[in-house]
Nucleic acid binder design. Structure first.
Lengths: 340, 340
DNA sequence: CTGAAAGCGCTTACAG
DNA sequence: CTGAAAGCGCTTACAG
């Protein structure tokens, strides 16, 4: 490998000057710069990130720690990568895939703070307290769920309001038995709780009775869970005529379960999800959903993080990104009224 | 931050000994080890990856450079991450999303070889020659397409054979007009060429005429491309009764186009894809596809890479992973014969 | 504008 | 088994 020392020798200058040229500092004589640049090119010098990081204390790297197997975060990651690049940072993605052990390994054990200038993280199992003790002075921005007493910067969407809005959309269709799929069997997911809250608030606001039998539980937020939960609802003897799934993935699973059993969507059962993942735009029927503004979320997260990297020490902030209900075929009103 | 020096001072030993304990070397007196370990714990020492990497020349990090927006690679990445972890390596993912500029930036400019012990890469736009000049002595394993004169380790599936097999499956259904979707408009993708070859070989082997009008071109391998190509085929006046899409994503787009226009799948048009992505198992109908063994591909790639990391300098190898045709509803024979 | 030198936090022959 | 010391390749006050 070619080092700055090699270049310095060739150009007849000190490494200090080479470093100045490489990093594009001002105050380098034009003549010197040209000479060094030539040596740089001729030797094919490329800076060693590790050495630079070790001595400067900054690597230009941001860790994005996500359950990449969740399409929502998968899609979000694209925006984060692009947005970070715009500010001169490189994002490296760490898959946690919802495994707490993996999350812990990433956050704990070795000091990744040396490697990464900052971290953007969607924690599933690691608590804020745990994270605080491990993250040292590396800026961390958390995505989603914000527990009380949070001491990190957060970016989130108002799950309660969004869930309420999409449930109201279902109510507006004239549906009578509106089910919800997504209450976790055991994990205490704030997201799920908030969406349940929104769902109940919408029912209450419409003067509807809350029926616990219409809330189906799941293990995870995957397609299979949605399919199973839907199947249970259908076999309950008194099937719903509309379902709000807490994410699109489960809605897609539910859709599959419905179509397999001969139910028509939306005619027999209207269906709505959450996340606006691409699959939902190509399913048949296409899927009504809540679309969080992913671009905005990414921008907010990177904004928050870079501000910290620039030395901002103000108290932790929470930014709320916008969202909207996107009606599609899965909740489209029947072609002509009263046909059912 | 706590350094080894801090720990050494506290334990009353040299940093050499601390390093020995941290790295779990043998030849450390039990008593010493215990004392150092206590200091380590009390101070909450965590090694600095950068410093370790710089002085040891190894970081334990593997870069996985992929178009993560392609579900096939997205699913593959999970296996690679797990497989690498099993060998003690950490995988960091770099999204290229099919953008050549991003690929170049990752491979060129800064010397990432200092940061990563090895690279697993699915190149879209960067040529092998270019890669060779940039990668230095960092081991690289390439995923997919293998050009002639390749000088890197490769892991791939036999696209020709697989495409031939799935086309034969379509022929076996008794379909007469079998279309193919996926020939690129301009890019010279080996993958697409191989799949076209396999498609043609199957037709030829069955004594069928090759009809260029039945091969639809696409810009990319995304859903929208599949939908558009399908639409064009349907509007061509003489629609196909079966379609082999070069990946599942396009097949899903094609499915959407078919269902939207009132065609029944598989009754009117049978449909097959390639990749076996999860979406295809939940669409209605579920999607017949070619399933490359992703676990095997990941294992082969990591095997190849770690072997190089252990000093193997044998000539570049090419490993072929297995695959199989997975028949699902989209090519299921009609319930009763001759019904059409 | 540029040089000589210290230092980032580790690893690792070299001695003992 | 352990210490003193050099070195990994850079950056960056400190002088000049």
């Amino acid at each position: 490998v070619v080092t700055q020392r090699d270049v310095a020798r060739r150009a007849g200058v000190s490494v200090r000057t080479v470093s100045n040229v490489v990093n594009d500092f001002e105050y380098v004589a034009e003549e010197t710069r040209a000479r060094v640049q030539r040596a740089l090119d001729e030797l094919g010098y490329r800076p060693n990130l590790l050495a630079r990081g070790l001595s400067s204390g900054r690597s230009g790297l941001i860790a994005l720690i996500l359950p990449l197997n969740v399409p929502y975060f998968h899609e979000l990651s694209e925006h984060v990568v692009v947005e970070a690049e715009r500010r001169g940072y490189t994002v490296l993605i760490d898959r946690t895939d919802g495994e707490v052990a993996r999350e812990r390994a990433l956050v704990g054990r070795t000091d990744r703070s040396a490697l990464f200038d900052g971290i953007i993280f969607n924690p599933i199992g690691v608590s804020e307290a745990e994270l605080r003790s491990q993250s040292g002075d590396t800026p961390v921005v958390l995505l989603g769920e914000k527990p009380v007493g949070a001491s990190f910067d957060h970016v989130l969407v108002d799950d309660v309001a969004a869930a309420k809005a999409v449930t109201e959309h279902l109510i507006g269709l004239g549906r009578q038995r509106i089910a919800a799929i997504g209450r976790p069997v055991k994990a205490r997911s704030l997201t799920a709780r908030h969406r349940t809250d929104g769902y109940r608030q919408a029912l209450a606001a419409a003067g509807r009775e809350f029926d616990p039998n219409l809330v189906a539980t799941v293990q995870m937020f995957q397609r299979a869970d949605g399919a199973q939960a839907m199947t249970r609802l259908l076999e309950s003897g008194n099937p719903p005529d509309a379902v709000f799934c807490y994410n699109d993935l489960m809605a897609l699973g539910a859709l599959r379960a419905l179509l397999t059993r001969g139910y028509r969507v939306p005619d027999d059962v209207a269906l709505a999800g959450f996340d606006d993942i691409e699959d939902g735009r190509y399913s048949t029927p296409t899927l009504t959903t809540v679309a969080p503004d992913k671009q905005e979320i990414a921008t907010l997260a990177i904004d928050l993080l870079t501000r910290r990297l620039d030395g901002d020490t103000s108290p932790p902030q929470t930014c709320s990104a916008s969202w909207r209900v996107v009606p599609r075929e899965s909740t489209a009103p029947p072609p002509s009224e009263g046909q059912r």
